[in-house]
Structure formats: C-alpha cells, structure tokens
C-alpha cells in the first residue's frame, strides 16, 4: 500500500476511535491520551481539535512533509463505560506490543460490537437505584416502592421515545413529567411517611451526572470550549427535568 493511502486509513481509524470515545462519555483529555497512544504505536503524530459535534484531526510523520487532515461528525452521545475501559486497555496493548494498523482495526471492531446490558436489567437496576435514593433522603419502604414504580415508568418512557427519534430534551421533559406525576399520586393518597421524598427522587435517574463531572474535569484541564459545551448540555438537561417537575407541582397544586 502506498504511504498516502495508509495515512488516510490511519487517520480514519483514529477519528473513529475518538468519536467512539466521545460518544461513550470520555472527557477530552482521555480522548487525546488515547489518540496519542494509538498514533505513537503506529509511529505517527496527531494533532486534533475535539468538539462536541465533530473532530478535526491532522496526522503526520515527524520527519517528512506527509500529512493528512480529516473531519468527522460525532453521532449523538450514549454513555458507555465498557467501551472507554476496553479502548484504554487496547491503547496500552497497542503501545507495548507495537500493534499494526489492521490489528488495531480488528480490536476496535470487536469493542464496538460489545453488547449493552439488556433493557430489562437496566430498568430494574435504575429503578432500584431510584428507591435507594429515596432511602438516602429519609424515605420509608412505602416511599421507596413509589420511587421504584415512578422511576421504572419514567425510564420506560425515556427508552421508548428513543426509538421515535424525538429531540433529547423533549424526551427528558416527558420522562420527568410522567415520572413525577406517578410519584405525586403518592402524595395525594398519603402513601408512606414522607411521600415528598418519592417525588424528589423519582426524576433523579435523568440527572446529567457524567456531563457535569466531565465538564469540570475539562474546564480544570483548560479544555474550556468542551467544558462549556458539556456544562451547557448538563444545564439544559437540568432545566428540562425541572420543567417537568414544575408542571407536575402546578397540576397537583403542591405546597
């Protein structure tokens, strides 16, 4: 293969890796770190601009004039820590064992095919997490039951609307609205000792924890643009959640 074709192939692979990392919820410095590792394993240097929606990367050899610049759009984000972990491990192995381009390609394909937890397992786990939250905020077992059911229904709505390709903030708003309406019935029928804890915790499964934590690590490492983008995304999510809760409170005239 001639060297310019190989360069294009390499830059495409590196762009693919960084896009997968961004989608899975890695912070900017981790994406940079992984790109540097893979590039050094293949004896290249890479410089890139990473943003929320697209990545621009230039790949070059240090002692020649050969270089290649490409841009890749990033698909919508879906947090997946297994992929982050697997790519991190692959990058170490690639550096230590001097993997070839096709070896890395094969490994990335395998990583991308990894399955997620089944939807039902996620639903049960997150609903249990919701009732755990309720316990943390002083709810009793009845409140925890209400929190479980409302989280379950809210997340179900969130998952089902995913297939219909609605706007993500609209989905968050509807999930928050419906989860809080279900939990508000607990207040109306006085289920348990602190029914308001169930209402407060029913919407927490939507909280943008990863976006906010990543935004701070990005800001602390001077990746200001990405930090601001992530913070704004987190803020929009919080606003959508708060709006859903707000409407429920207004509907049920809680005070």
């Amino acid at each position: 293969m001639d060297s310019s074709k190989e360069l294009i192939k390499t830059v495409d692979l590196l762009l693919d890796i960084s896009s997968v990392l961004m989608v899975s919820g890695a912070n900017t410095s981790r994406v940079n770190l992984s790109i540097d590792r893979f590039a050094s394993a293949l004896n290249f240097k890479a410089s890139c601009f990473i943003s929320h929606k697209s990545i621009i990367m230039t790949l070059y050899e240090e002692h020649t004039t050969l270089s290649c610049t490409r841009v890749k759009n990033i698909p919508p984000h879906a947090i997946n820590f297994s992929i982050i972990s697997a790519i991190s491990k692959a990058s170490w192995n690639a550096v230590e064992e001097r993997w070839t381009l096709s070896q890395i390609e094969r490994e990335i394909e395998i990583i991308k095919k990894q399955t997620r937890y089944p939807k039902l397992v996620v639903l049960m786990a997150v609903s249990l997490a919701g009732s755990g939250f309720c316990k943390i905020f002083n709810g009793d077992y009845f409140n925890m039951g209400v929190a479980f059911i409302s989280t379950f229904i809210g997340l179900l709505i969130f998952q089902l609307t995913h297939k219909e390709k609605f706007n993500v903030y609209l989905r968050i708003y509807f999930a928050s609205l419906i989860a809080s309406i279900v939990a508000a019935t607990g207040i109306i029928f006085h289920i348990g000792e602190n029914p308001q804890t169930a209402l407060a915790t029913s919407i927490l499964f939507l909280v943008p924890g990863v976006a906010l934590i990543n935004s701070f690590t990005d800001l602390l490492e001077n990746n200001i643009i990405n930090g601001m983008v992530r913070f704004t995304t987190g803020l929009m999510t919080v606003l959508a959640i708060a709006l859903g809760l707000f409407i429920t409170m207004l509907l049920f005239q809680l005070n």
Binding site: N80, F81, Y117, V122, A125, S127, L128, G130, F205, V210
Partner: peptide
C-alpha cells in the same frame, strides 16, 4: 444502578 445505566 447508575453504573449499569452507564454500562460499566
């Protein structure tokens, strides 16, 4: 629960 949502 959140870990499983994030697919750890």
């Amino acid at each position: 629960g959140f870990g499983i949502l994030f697919n750890i």
